[in-house]
């Protein structure tokens, strides 16, 4: 599982994003530009339509400082910002940074928690859309075993 070379992984990621383009027509809402993007700003453009975010301390990211297993990194994002309409979680060092994007409807509080994969050490970026503008915060996570293989 862990002996995959980095080059093949990158190549694979390209092929995968090309192959993944076909069946997605059914789900119009799934932002394929965002998930296919190779960098954090591109991913934000693709999902949220803008990459200008302002840093905010009102967003809290709970994640381990050192992840022993990059295949399963628990991430909790909570925010005290009002009027939160979406929360996106990105892992900056992954071949495709965008991991998950949550659209919160009426009644949902500014809190989501999930588990993501991290290929290598990097930042977890949380982007919160609140009152029409984007706010972000980041947290560095050191990965001792990569998670893209598993």
């Amino acid at each position: 599982m862990m002996n995959m070379k980095r080059r093949t992984m990158l190549k694979g990621a390209l092929i995968a994003s090309a192959a993944a383009l076909t069946p997605q027509a059914v789900l119009a809402a799934w932002p394929k530009e965002g998930f296919g993007a190779k960098s954090v700003p591109e991913a934000l453009m693709g999902t949220l339509g803008s990459d200008s975010t302002s840093p905010s301390d009102a967003i809290k990211i709970k994640a381990p400082d050192i992840a022993e297993n990059g295949a399963v990194v628990p991430v909790t994002v909570s925010t005290t910002l009002a009027d939160v309409t979406s929360i996106s979680i990105l892992a900056s060092a992954n071949p495709s940074p965008l991991a998950a994007s949550f659209d919160l409807g009426a009644g949902a509080a500014g809190f989501v928690s999930t588990r993501i994969k991290m290929g290598k050490t990097g930042d977890i970026v949380a982007v919160v859309k609140s009152g029409g503008s984007l706010h972000s915060n980041r947290k560095g996570v050191k990965v001792t075993i990569g998670g893209c293989g598993g």
Binding site: A100, S101, G150
Partner: peptide, 17 residues
């Protein structure tokens, strides 16, 4: 709540809100 996920979410996903 609507969540859009990519391949970056771990196997046997967990979600909380």
């Amino acid at each position: 709540l609507t969540a859009h996920w990519g391949g970056g979410v771990s196997k046997n996903p967990y979600m909380s809100f």
